[in-house]
Amino acid sequence: MRKIGGFDVLEDFLRLVVSSNNLFITTWNLYSWKYLDEVLNIGKFFPVHITVQKFTTSEIKECILSGYKQDEIKFTEDVELEKENLIDVIKYPFPIKPLKKSINIPFFKINYHIFKARLFKKKVTTEDIIFEKINHLSKGNPGVARVLWQKSLEYPTIKPSKIKDLGINVELDYNDSFILSIILSMKSVKKEELAEIAGLEYQIDEILFGLLKWELISIEDDYCSIKPEALGSIVEFLKKLRMVW
């Protein structure tokens, strides 16, 4: 746990690893590993590292469709797809603090799946667009991709417009962001543990309320975890703040 004295169990385990003749195979959350490797140099205790690579679009497609019969799922082209452009203009709210208002500034957003298809002069099918979108949002994570799929599927039909991009248009203060980074790194963490990490001066309930409001986390049986569909956006956001490396 990320607090003073919170690494004692891990240090005991690392001592056991170096003093034992047994073979240890461990799995780590990517963000925990990166943090612990920098601060405790745990990499040197495990001579062989295997990083699970990001899935490609075709691998994600294969993984998801393996649970269905051929032609069981209907990929339906909806209105948005026909109109889909290479570059979309999206409005980004820009807060003007003295006026306590925000104005919408137009930004250009590239639709990568269309861009890729045009670059390689490939004929784009609805199926391709759906899996490109899922892959882009899940950042190649098969678990997240599966959740996105399930949330977008209206069995037996799936439409590109149903796959929602959450974006990271949220307002979180530094403490909220820190707690979010802890939840991300620990995958599933008890509320009491988060309270210990946050310290006495911060109300963990207030922080969690904010994170729930932005639909970034879910709490089940007092255990907090990241919402899979928000994973990509959260990582992007926390990397900007250098809270995950």
Partner: peptide, 21 residues
């Protein structure tokens, strides 16, 4: 040990091979 852990668990810390603690 306490000071090291206080620094490395701070929410403001940045540690890397080039920026060690």
């Amino acid at each position: 040990k306490i000071l090291r852990e206080a620094a490395m668990t701070s929410k403001y810390v940045f540690v890397s091979k080039k920026s060690p603690l």
